[in-house]
Design a protein around this nucleic acid. Structure first.
Lengths: 124, 124
DNA sequence: CGCACCCTGTTACAGATGTAGTAGATTCTG
DNA sequence: CAGAATCTACTACATCTGTAACAGGGTGCG
């Protein structure tokens, strides 16, 4: 379930509002990408081949909708990044973010809040 | 400075010990990948084209060494992930990790330590 | 009903990636 | 020195990705 850069753009549209036709998706991405209708159509069909989307025919038009959740796709992407660029552990990514990505004090505070929340609602 | 999956494998070798010849790199990756010598050579040369590596000729052999640091490459990869799969902010990635990636209580504690440490050594 | 329009499905093509063979230059070794 | 072992440089080829044109079928408006 590896998605390419352009494919992520389309998936985000479908995660926001689905089912949607190729034209719907085109309209949602046109300003940002300038893609031709056929470009969008090709990519949508490739996503169906990959089973990232499902398509249903409604009259003569295909309506697309996600076959995977955004969180699942994100999880796959994060784990792929960990494998190729880090040592496979989330810890090393977190460490990198803290030492290299310059989280602001505000972001650190927010992170702590999230941690506290997760501690409260259990979880091993 | 976008690196492909296979390229990351080679870069990790060079970050560990450089300069190194194509054969050195082959030997370091052979067990894990089963690549042919010429495969490694091709990829190393492509990395030089991309300016991810530099090569110096020593006698009749090219010795390769990183032209970018591991942290810089990781930073590029993390930011690319944020752009394509998240909303561009580190916060949303952190949020994802906390809610989806099942950090253990132990990992959460470790993260808090890192946060405290970063608060202490300044940083906005 | 006919025409304009939209949709699908097919085909195309260049660049990146994964993977590797081969020719010719160079160097070690006996 | 001659042969073996190495190296580099070039070439090759399938697949994936980004991008799109085009042909032919369905459909709604006048």
């Amino acid at each position: 379930m590896k998605l390419s850069d352009a494919e992520w753009t389309l998936m985000h549209v479908l995660w926001e509002r689905s089912p949607a036709s190729a034209r719907d998706v085109l309209e949602a991405t046109e300003a940002e990408t300038g893609w031709a209708y056929s470009t969008v159509k090709t990519m949508l069909d490739r996503l169906v081949d990959k089973s990232a989307l499902r398509a249903r025919k409604r009259a003569n038009t295909l309506l697309y909708e996600p076959a995977v959740t955004r969180d699942a796709a994100r999880g796959t992407a994060v784990r792929a990044l960990l494998e190729k660029a880090f040592d496979g552990t989330l810890g090393s990514l977190v460490h990198h973010m803290l030492s290299e990505e310059r989280l602001s004090r505000r972001e650190r505070a927010r992170l702590r809040e999230l941690l506290d929340e997760h501690d409260r609602r259990g979880g091993a």
